[in-house]
């Protein structure tokens, strides 16, 4: 089987795969930025003194975390057009699905980061005469951020892999592009293995980088 491994197929497919990779990267970037922004809002709601906000955020996070991503993708792909009243296209529905889904995970990361700062640290700040806000800004958040960054980046790598699931609604990301060529040219082995290698190299390098970062900024 490997004897007739045809590199030419891969070379010819490169432009299609590259366009797919751009979609994958776009999806990853939007979901990271959107997920962190909305996730921060959710985390602050979760930690807020207002029961309504806290409960809403908790339910939101529980709901998304117990539902498979594929089902969430289906939800938005099929249901959003009804809500909006018109078709919005597969790209937008998937972008919304990923952002809302990832927000639930980022919310938990950010909340854990903030809660990882021990109470005595806050007391120490207050004892020095800093105000509540000054303590939060100059003592709690910088430490929380350092604790969070590696986890946020690790989650980003998971997210990058998860974007391949848009295959189920036919959005032409990297994997779907590889799959299209694989079926078109009947070159399953070459294309799937290429996809695996590309994902592996990107994720492996990123995770090594995150690991180094973690060591560098270890508290």
């Amino acid at each position: 089987m490997f004897a007739d491994f045809d590199f030419q197929v891969i070379v010819e497919a490169a432009p299609i795969l590259w366009r797919g990779m751009l979609i994958t990267l776009l999806l990853t970037a939007v979901a990271i930025v959107g997920g962190i922004l909305f996730g921060t809002v959710l985390a602050l709601m979760r930690l807020s003194r207002f029961m309504v906000l806290s409960v809403f955020s908790g339910r939101y996070v529980d709901a998304f975390r117990s539902t498979p991503l594929i089902l969430v993708i289906f939800w938005f792909y099929f249901a959003v057009p009804y809500v909006v009243g018109r078709p919005i296209g597969d790209l937008y529905s998937v972008l919304i699905a990923f952002t809302l889904f990832e927000a639930a995970y980022y919310c938990e990361i950010i909340r854990a980061g903030i809660q990882s700062i021990r109470q005595p640290q806050v007391h120490a700040g207050l004892a020095l005469g800093l105000s509540q806000w000054q303590t939060t800004r100059s003592i709690v958040l910088p430490q929380a951020f350092r604790n969070m960054v590696p986890v946020i980046l690790t989650q980003a790598i998971v997210l990058f892999q998860d974007t391949s699931l848009v295959y189920v609604v036919g959005l032409k990301d990297f994997l779907t592009a590889a799959d299209l060529v694989a079926t078109r040219d009947n070159r399953v082995l070459e294309l799937y293995l290429t996809a695996a290698v590309v994902y592996f190299v990107l994720c492996f390098i990123s995770s090594m980088w995150v690991k180094r970062l973690r060591r560098q900024y270890a508290l």
Partner: peptide, 10 residues
């Protein structure tokens, strides 16, 4: 480091 879906196909 390889997405589950890719592994499934392989």
């Amino acid at each position: 480091n390889i997405p589950l879906l890719v592994q499934m196909f392989i």
